[in-house]
Design a binder for these strands. Sequence first.
DNA 1: AACGACGTCAACCGCCAGTAG
DNA 2: ACTACTGGCGGTTGACGTCGT
Length: 254
Amino acid sequence: MARTPFYDKSGMRKGTWSAEEDRKLIAYVTRYGCWNWRQLPKFAGLSRCGKSCRLRWMNYLRPDIKRGNFTQQEEELIIQMHKNMGNRWSVISAELPGRTDNEVKNHWHTSLKKRVQQMNTVSNEDTIVAKSPANSHISDITDSLSPFSSSSDVSSTSENDFGFLDTFIESMDESFWLDDLSNTPSGIVQNNTSCAIQNQENTTNDVFLVSHNHMSYESFVLDNDFSNFLNAYTESTVDSFWTHPYEGDMSYVL
DNA sequence: AACGACGTCAACCGCCAGTAG
DNA sequence: ACTACTGGCGGTTGACGTCGT
């Protein structure tokens, strides 16, 4: 079911994601968030385009994704909403907690579409669609849906595929979140802070990230941009800042 | 056992809207 | 007003699994 991995002309990897790539993406997004999908693969050490990373995260790796078979309740809701608004998959999936638009779309094309067509053939009346609750009742249905509903049939395949994730999460102790930040105090950037950063070992090839209101980030390469960073942020308040080890060609980063 | 037809779904592609400069 | 960039959306593809002959 997966596409054979290959590299395109520009050296970007395409096709099925490997477990190692998944681990890198999960580790990075969990730790730093998705501040810029296009830049993210460079920092995460992935030879993927940002679009591919976003898709992989949104459709497969997000922790709140519900897996397993669709319940009858979910299917009825999809049929009802599709009747009302057509192929608005993102809108429909928004009413199904834990389901992605891609998943809903696939399920429609592979299963529900034929079912609806068959029902329409059997009866000239609108069958189950007409009998389903009107739009005003959709919320009643969705209220009972949960990403981790016990009614969902979680397949063993999914469990096997995500075994590495369980191991990964188990290995995440407090130091996972604090190790870099503990070396570079966050908050107000002061001269002694800069000294502390400069005195760190192996910072020559580090990228330095500054967060603004947890909304945007700015990056510096320590050996080239450090004076710029000091001019811009000394004695100013920022949410957080930390170094990010980067192995490779630094011209690629900027 | 071998083969083809069909089903499934992760991943790709092109397009569009929103936003910043 | 224009351009470039980015994220998001929906349509489509391709490879593997399953089923029937």
